[in-house]
Amino acid sequence: MNIGIVGLGLIGGSLALDLRSLGYQVLGVSRRESTCQIAIERGIVNDASVNLSLLAAADVVFICTPLDLIIPTIEQLLPHLSPQAIVTDVGSVKSPIVTEAVKIWPNFIGGHPMAGTAESGIDAAQSNLFVGNPYVLTPVKNSTPEAVKIVGEIVRSLQAKFYLCRPEEHDKAVAWISHLPVMISASLIGACLSENEIDVLELAQNLASSGFRDTSRVGGGNPELGVLMATYNQEQLLRSLFSYRQTLDRLITYIQQGDWNSLADILQTTQQARPQFLSSKEL
């Protein structure tokens, strides 16, 4: 089977590495000629080009671009795709992408691997990035069972944890566990920067340790990615933010009133609930 990958960054490059090692013929497309050369020299792909015409031979194409480029990329791919080709993506928001993509190419299956690192670009590509991590496919009513089966088999071959759900279910879920944490983490950093006593701010920066590092990590990521997830998942992110604000207001009230028993109840509940979100993962 020939697999095309558009976008040879961390996710696209890592997909290519693993799929080629599994025996697939991998064809990569990047905007930069230098990226294509690196991908070929490192053995990440069998062939690479800056031209989408390379993917005319692809049976399945993974779109591994930023969210705002997924639909334009599919449109540009149309003249080059074989009629039976399956197109999928790796975007972190599904409903708006899937809705538009299936209008352009009915044989589209939305996808989202929940894996990554803080690094980016072709140099960050690594083997086994998806092993043990969730990989979600979001077919719709008109998706063909054969297309879902083929992409699902590819996902399973990566040794990822395979899930199927509706696009809107995916977006609600990731709003809670991925997009909301980015906004909370960014708010934490922003709140700390509001300290107007320079000596205190510098002391806080010097004393910051693992607790601050863990809770602020995603807020220190790529700003463009944060804006894109908010743009494309606005409704569900706002839904989760409003709920978070209500919970935070309740904590403020308990602390203002010295209601330590109610505060302890919440902290005990969250302590017990956390492992349910991290089952089989390192706590």
Rank of each mutant, 00 (worst) to 15 (best):
M114H: 05
M114L: 13
A115D: 02
G116H: 06
G116V: 03
T117W: 01
T117M: 01
T117F: 03
E119R: 14
S120E: 12
A124F: 01
L129V: 04
F130M: 03
N133T: 11
P134A: 01
L137E: 10
T138R: 00
V140Q: 09
V140P: 01
K141Y: 11
T144W: 07
T144Y: 13
P145D: 14
E146F: 08
V151K: 05
V151W: 04
V151A: 04
V151Q: 04
G152H: 07
G152N: 09
E153I: 09
E153V: 08
E153D: 15
E153P: 10
I154M: 10
V155C: 06
S157D: 11
Q159H: 15
A160H: 05
Y163L: 13
R166F: 02
P167F: 03
E168A: 10
E169V: 12
E169D: 14
H170D: 12
K172C: 07
K172Y: 12
A175S: 13
W176A: 14
W176H: 08
W176N: 09
W176D: 10
I177P: 04
S178R: 08
S178D: 05
L180E: 05
M183S: 10
I184Y: 00
I184P: 03
A186T: 11
A186G: 11
L188G: 06
G190P: 03
A191I: 10
C192K: 00
C192G: 15
C192Y: 06
L193Q: 14
L193V: 01
L193H: 13
E195C: 11
N196V: 09
N196F: 01
N196K: 15
D199H: 12
D199E: 15
V200I: 12
L201C: 04
E202T: 02
L203D: 10
L203H: 08
A204C: 13
A204Q: 09
Q205G: 11
N206M: 12
A208V: 11
A208G: 13
S209W: 09
S209L: 08
S209M: 07
S209Y: 10
S210P: 01
G211K: 06
T215L: 06
S216D: 06
S216H: 03
S216K: 00
R217G: 06
N222L: 08
E224R: 10
E224T: 10
V227W: 09
M229H: 01
A230F: 01
Y232W: 13
Q234T: 05
